[in-house]
Amino acid sequence: MAWILRVRDLQKFYGPVRAVDGVSFDVSAGTIFALLGPNGAGKTTTVEILEGLRTPDAGEIWLFGEKVDRIGPSQKARMGVLLQEGAFEPYLRVREVLALFAAFFPRSAEPDELLSLVGLRDKARALVKNLSGGQKQRLALATALLNDPELLFLDEPTAGLDPQARRHIWDILQNLRARGNTVFLTTHHMEEAETLSDWVCIMDHGRIIAEGGPKDLISRFGPATFVEFELPGELFSALSAGFPERVRQDGERAILHVEDLGADMAALFSWAAERGVTLANVTLRQPNLEDVFLSLTGRRLRD
């Protein structure tokens, strides 16, 4: 598949801090690409370089088939951007914000259509300051879509949103991909990357530590199956002793890495019965990108 964006050895340092430390990847046209990593991994710095908001210290960027030294107006006219910490003038109305942004582009979509698309049609006359967090994020998405962008950068697009609002945005992004738009997503939300993306780059401490399709990454780095259940904290070390190097604690919950489902479950229930422990809220789940990140770094994405 043809790439729309190619990055090679991108670097950005702030004094001794290597925010982006030699990052390389390709983004294929018509796909959803996710840059996944914990806060502070360098995702936002990377994406802001690609949006033309920061200048890199080193590295090469090819965008829309051309090598570019600096992301300028002609590239920006073909891109859509949703910033992690972007904001709009609080005393403008929703439709006025769209009209303002539409004026920045050579051509733009009909604002009312976009408002319908993001579910803000009935808020067209509302002042930005009176919108909820989710509504502001949907407005941000609408402004990012105004110029029908070939490449859409979304930096943590669902951060702080409730599950329903998050699903709504996911639906929109999937529809965009179906229309042939390319989406570059940065997120620390593993479910988002896993559900939406065709290709995931996992980033940590300014570097890409793994990349591939989400299923591929999970099968490459993630263990087979997990059993999760509630367990009082004082019993955790006893469980660890019973299942060495296969148990980890997540708050009130224990997570057991299962290799042979039948045998391991039988062993777990007998361990519990011997101690008179009732295993509550037992769930069986497949591994995910969170587990991949954990196995690669020993840390969790949200730490």
Binding site: E51, G52, L53, P73, S74, K76, A77, M79, V81, L83, E85, G86, A87, F88, E89, F101, F104, F105, P106, A140, T143, N147, F153
Partner: peptide
Amino acid sequence: LAKEAGILRRYFATPLS
């Protein structure tokens, strides 16, 4: 204020100079 709030960053992610 627009700079502090991130309003200008959003503007300059468009072709606006």
